[in-house]
Design a protein around this nucleic acid. Structure first.
Lengths: 216, 216
DNA sequence: TAGATTGTTAATCGATTAACAATC
DNA sequence: TAGATTGTTAATCGATTAACAATC
């Protein structure tokens, strides 16, 4: 069995994506080699963790006292994670957050093309969000069947998140990025990743409280 | 020692914030009681996990065959997590994402008030982002010293993230929410939480690839 | 060669799940 | 009372760290 067939544990996957960014940066600085120790120091990890993580990917590099060849490492990381695949995404919800995502230059640069933005409010239909025109939800089905859409980005209020998810799944979208608070239920074979800024803010708020208290 | 003094493990903290939202929703539906089993089913967890999580917080509720009293649970969750504290935040970076965050209605509703937005580009200074006026970075120091700021939200390109973090820390901001890719280094006593949508998209992209492959 | 670094195994640490006595 | 549910201990599972032989 090919090593890349295995499901990567979430923490490993998240760190591997960080390694990609780091390697990319170092390479454009003209560096040629990088060691697990350097990666670890740059990202606040241990070298042991880095080597364990890299053992999950198909890395043909030979053992060397210089560490890893940047080019080889970059190639291995990119292909193993599928970071070389272009993904097409639609944003559902043309509020401030949805529109900002549709305009975010970082996404296409990283291989995520936002090809459509939809909103249930008919008043928003026809308005512009950057190069895209906001479309009514009624046209979502036809749109998805016409263009291949890999990812649905759910940027609607939490009470609408589940029904939006259902509609995306029904039309064959295999992956959902849920930005709304609250849990969404999906059938087996559909991937969901949650990314909630409010949750992060609450986590931060709690840590601040404790840190202050411990300083007294 | 008071139980609430302890640092909550990150996964526990993240789930507890989900419980808050769930409890809030059920309460406005007129429910009176909730069991660990119901919470678990609503959020895709086990009841054992829920009970373990709740053992971390100061919950005075007595054992009952009905589960937890919604009001008591809500109160315990809210106070233990400090979710009743109003936090003041500044956004650094008035790109699409930064502006969207400054306008996001969800934040004040959850107790996070965005009181300022800053950008290093002098051309942006003076422009509006909702009710706020975009300010130049040179005024950040005076601003923070005038109003108490708990949280700095870093919404700048990754190459600028570290220097923005340094500036916020230097002026006494105790918590940072980092939306930029890349690691930021902070001294002890400063809290950082990362929230990166691109990382989430990459995670999702990888999972989609594997799911497809396994279906064949 | 000698020092540095990998890849991997074993040990530790932490988080989740199972089990069950206590009890409403 | 009998069924349901908690709180907590013990068992399992998974992730991180340490250690070290192999080797460039």
């Amino acid at each position: 069995m090919n090593i890349s067939e295995k499901q990567l544990p979430t923490p490993v996957l998240q760190r591997l994506t960080q390694y990609i960014d780091l390697v990319h940066m170092l390479k454009s600085n003209g560096e040629k080699w990088i060691s697990s120790k350097t990666i670890a120091q740059s990202l606040g990890l241990t070298s042991s963790t880095v080597r364990q993580d890299l053992s999950h990917i198909a890395l043909s590099g030979s053992v060397s006292k210089h560490g890893y060849k940047l080019g080889d490492l970059q190639h291995a990381l990119t292909t193993s994670l599928g970071a070389d695949v272009i993904r097409h995404a639609v944003v559902i919800g043309a509020g401030n957050l949805g529109k900002a995502l549709a305009l975010h230059e970082e996404f296409p640069r990283r291989g995520f093309i936002i090809c459509g933005i939809f909103d249930s409010d008919p008043k928003k239909a026809g308005k512009k969000a950057g190069a895209l025109t906001i479309k009514p939800m009624s046209t979502l089905k036809a749109f998805i069947h016409q263009k291949p859409v890999d990812i649905g980005i759910i940027a609607v209020p939490s009470h609408a998140a589940q029904s939006v998810a259902d509609m995306l799944i029904l039309n064959g979208v295999p992956g959902l990025l849920n930005l709304a608070p609250g849990h969404i239920v999906v059938p087996k074979g559909i991937c969901v990743v949650n990314s909630r800024i409010v949750t992060s803010l609450r986590e931060l708020s709690h840590r601040i409280t404790l840190t202050k208290r411990n300083m007294k």
